[in-house]
């Protein structure tokens, strides 16, 4: 199993395709950082428009923490596409190349093969997120400094103390990892059914795009199905950036407003991952390899 995992990782990281994602993330993050560095004041003024009407806001509003939040908000919707590129290719790509049949005539069980491949996809996903965390969080902290973070939500503003943020990002990245892993498992599952990688990649992306649009649309008829779409839960990481207040409306440091909702979303995603992985194993064990 360990050998198989090593081999899968070796294969993933020997392919140029793997690095597209890293380059894309680096490019997107630096573009956003550059834009905010140059024109961030306008962005902040716009976001603070309503608040500035009644309040004077002083301090480094556009600090590394807020920049990271903006980046994650923009990027985490698109990273699934990059994850898909690898995950949906894992089985179908080998079927297409013809290496799948060679791999499966080796004295390793299919369950081992599929788990090793899934783990490799998971590791790839985590590495991409860690890479993103370094760029989006640490580099932003270096460029923009740190301060309290104003989370400007649609209905209200949350002020997070600068020493109450970092752990939230760790949680957010873990949550994002879960969300991305859900995408990876979907791509992985679909890749079982094709003998070229284009099909499952496009299928996975389509599912994500359609689901995301349904999740985003604020139309009553779609609201009813939102809870059943995994994309709705994928943005649950934002929940870590809202705090509870006490009776005096003071923010309670270290609290999370809807922790149960966030955990529920995480649970739903975990169930998706487990379900898709189990289905993958069951399908793959019985599958006749005709490629």
């Amino acid at each position: 199993m360990w050998k198989l995992l090593q081999i899968e990782l070796f294969k993933i990281f020997k392919r140029p395709r793997t690095y597209i994602s890293f380059v894309a993330v680096a490019a997107l993050v630096s573009i956003i950082q550059f834009g905010l560095k140059v024109d961030g004041k306008m962005y902040v003024d716009f976001m603070l428009r309503d608040l500035s009407a009644s309040f004077n806001i002083e301090g480094n509003v556009l600090n590394g923490y807020l920049v990271c939040y903006i980046i994650l908000q923009l990027l985490l919707v698109h990273v699934p596409l990059l994850i898909t590129l690898i995950a949906a290719d894992l089985i179908s790509g080998e079927a297409n190349m013809g290496t799948l049949r060679l791999l499966l005539t080796k004295p390793v069980s299919r369950t081992e093969v599929i788990l090793a491949k899934f783990l490799a996809a998971a590791i790839y996903t985590f590495l991409l997120l860690i890479f993103m965390a370094i760029l989006a969080l640490f580099v932003s902290m270096a460029i923009f400094g740190t301060d309290d973070m104003l989370n400007l939500k649609s209905g209200y503003v949350v002020q997070l103390k600068s020493n109450d943020i970092f752990w939230r990002y760790i949680c957010a990245f873990c949550f994002a990892a879960l969300a991305m892993l859900t995408v990876a498992s979907l791509g992985f599952f679909l890749s079982l059914f094709a003998e070229n990688s284009i099909g499952p990649i496009v299928a996975t992306m389509s599912v994500i795009v359609v689901f995301t649009i349904l999740s985003t649309l604020d139309i009553p008829i779609f609201n009813a199905i939102k809870p059943y779409l995994f994309t709705t839960h994928m943005i649950g990481w934002k929940g870590f950036f809202d705090v509870k207040v006490n009776n005096d409306n003071e923010a309670i440091i270290g609290s999370v407003q809807n922790l149960d909702k966030v955990l529920q979303a995480a649970g739903i995603l975990a169930l998706h991952i487990f379900g898709l992985l189990l289905a993958s194993v069951l399908v793959f064990r019985k599958k006749d390899i005709l490629s």
Partner: peptide
Amino acid sequence: IEKPDVYKYLSAFENVQLFSKIS
């Protein structure tokens, strides 16, 4: 089996090494 398909983006040595590990 049929066409001798191996990992085209790897060298022959890497291919042999890779499969020797799980053979």
